[in-house]
Simulated scan of single mutants.
Amino acid sequence: MTEYEKKAFQELEAWEKKMRKRQTLAARYAKVVQNKINAKIPEKVHNIITESIKKTVTAVLVGSEYTTKRTPLKEASLEQREELVLEKVKVYKRIASAEGAGTGAGGLLLGAADFPLLLGIKMKFLFDAASLYGFDVKDYRERLYILHLFQLAFSSDKKRMEVLEEIKSWEQTAESLPVKSTYLQTIDWQSWQQEYRDHIDLVKLFQLLPGIGAVIGAYANYKLLDELSETAMNGYRMRFFNK
């Protein structure tokens, strides 16, 4: 290994250890508060989240929206790839923050519109990251891996453990997954949206409140992109070192 690869491997080990930790008591208490706030949010807002997840996942699996003009980067070191990925992270964080501030300033319904917009930003980043790590996103299995990374970043403790084990042995996992024509039929959309919504930070829900939504929206989106980028980089490092 190069010095950079040694450092990246150590960071990967530390990240995996962190992913295996259970939520702290404070986090579990925040979840109770979050559930109470969730119960007060109109059903219309929850429906927006569910439908946006369904449309986004469907687009990832069957559409060309995210694959167009993305070609895998060949013949580059891990360090070179990650320099480019980190540049992308900066760009997407700025976009997400600006978008969160804009929608957050509009109160409940406009704040709810942030969810599908942010989902799109997250997916575009994941597709860019995959290409920079040298994976062809036109390959159906690579798009499934992207969805697994998304779930890994935004899921409960139990689901996170399941997904982590699946990506640790991705070649075997990919072989056992349903073919593209039937995969959509196997998805439990309610579970998907529940995992995603439950993971969204307590502060993110305050983006839906008039008056303070703009500042909170910008901060929350920046933080969520930061979390996603850490998951993506270590998820692809895992495959790099597995080879």
Results as ranks from 00 to 15, higher is better:
M1I: 00
A8N: 08
A8M: 12
L12E: 01
L12M: 13
L12A: 15
E13T: 11
M19I: 14
M19G: 13
R20T: 09
K21Q: 15
R22F: 13
Q23P: 14
L25T: 12
A27N: 10
Y29T: 11
A30G: 15
V32M: 12
I37N: 04
N38C: 11
N38S: 14
A39D: 12
E43M: 15
V45Q: 12
H46K: 14
I49N: 14
T50R: 12
T58M: 04
A59F: 00
A59E: 05
G63A: 15
G63E: 15
G63V: 03
S64L: 06
E65L: 14
T68W: 01
T68C: 01
T68E: 01
R70A: 02
R70T: 02
A76W: 03
E79H: 11
Q80L: 09
R81N: 04
E82G: 11
V85C: 11
L86R: 13
E87V: 07
K88N: 04
K88M: 00
V89A: 12
V89T: 13
V89M: 07
I95F: 07
G100H: 06
G102R: 08
T103W: 09
A105V: 08
G106V: 04
G107C: 12
L108Q: 02
L108H: 00
L110R: 10
A113V: 12
D114C: 09
D114L: 08
P116D: 07
L118P: 14
L119E: 02
G120C: 12
K122D: 01
K124R: 15
L126V: 02
L126S: 07
F127P: 05
D128Y: 10
D128G: 06
S131E: 07
S131V: 09
S131H: 02
L132V: 05
L132I: 00
D136P: 00
D136F: 05
D139V: 13
R143A: 08
R143C: 04
Y145D: 13
I146F: 03
Q151V: 00
L152E: 03
A153I: 07
F154N: 05
S156E: 03
D157F: 15
K158F: 05
R160F: 01
M161T: 10
M161L: 13
M161C: 07
V163C: 00
V163E: 03
I167Q: 01
T173Q: 07
E175N: 15
E175H: 14
P178S: 02
P178Y: 03
T182C: 14
Y183C: 05
T186P: 09
I187R: 14
S191Q: 01
W192A: 01
Q193P: 04
Y196A: 04
Y196Q: 00
H199W: 14
I200M: 09
D201H: 03
V203M: 06
K204P: 07
L205N: 01
L205M: 04
Q207E: 09
L208K: 08
L208F: 11
L209M: 13
L209H: 06
P210H: 08
I212H: 04
I212N: 07
A214L: 11
V215T: 06
I216S: 10
I216F: 10
I216N: 10
A218M: 02
A220Y: 03
K223A: 06
K223Q: 09
K223S: 08
L228V: 00
L228Y: 02
E230K: 14
A232R: 08
M233G: 05
M233V: 13
N234L: 02
G235I: 02
M238N: 10
M238I: 00
R239C: 07
R239G: 06
F240V: 12
N242T: 12
N242I: 13
